[in-house]
């Protein structure tokens, strides 16, 4: 196992590993806290509407496909194709954020707040921190689309896949595991 075998920049892999650890720590803490009040956590979790989260998973992985295509196009010297796919990936991020905003608005309209129950504290912190990464990812993708070059596009795509990866890992404990 050699560091040179890793595709892309090493710093991006350090970032990906670090972010996975941060979110894993948050999910583990939430799961451990649940042991103090299993029924309360189950009742709180049942108040969430998982349909928007499922839709957002489709949006994010589709956006990830466009980011991967942008990376491939940039490496092939197809700047126009790379830019078009970066814009589509960015659009996916914006759609994700709009859907997340609608989900939060629905939550708040049903009197769910960050201090309603410890479950919702974790819910808002983890999904909110993830949404902050989506905002950063949208900015990064838009930035590398301005002047398409293979290495920055690859770094931007790697960041975007990290956002995607974290979402599929935090989704079941937050929305699905009763």
């Amino acid at each position: 196992m050699d560091l040179d075998d890793l595709p892309g920049e090493l710093i991006m892999w350090i970032l990906i590993g670090s972010e996975i650890l941060v979110f894993a720590a948050g999910i583990t803490a939430m799961s451990a806290m649940r042991l103090t009040d299993p029924a309360g956590f189950a009742d709180a979790q049942a108040m969430l509407d998982g349909r928007m989260a499922a839709l957002n998973t489709v949006v994010l992985v589709t956006s990830g496909l466009f980011a991967a295509r942008a990376e491939r196009a940039a490496h092939a010297g197809n700047r126009r194709g790379a830019r078009r796919n970066l814009m589509l990936a960015t659009l996916g991020g914006v759609i994700f954020l709009v859907a997340k905003g609608l989900e939060y608005a629905h939550d708040l309209s049903t009197e769910i707040g960050i201090d309603t129950h410890p479950f919702f504290t974790f819910y808002f912190l983890l999904t909110g921190f993830h949404a902050a990464h989506v905002i950063a990812g949208v900015a990064v993708l838009a930035l590398v689309a301005v002047r398409v070059r293979p290495e920055p596009v690859q770094a931007g795509a790697m960041f975007w896949h990290m956002v995607d990866l974290i979402w599929v890992l935090i989704l079941p404990p937050i929305y699905l595991l009763m």
């Binding site: 196992m1 595709p7 896949h161």
Partner: peptide, 27 residues
């Protein structure tokens, strides 16, 4: 629950291997 987490693992594998190109670096 085990199935849902196994599916999350499989999605992670697809993203890491297929989109982040770790299929080329199996270790």
């Amino acid at each position: 629950a085990a199935g849902l987490l196994a599916l999350a693992w499989a999605k992670s594998r697809a993203i890491l291997g297929g989109f982040l190109h770790l299929d080329r670096a199996p270790e």
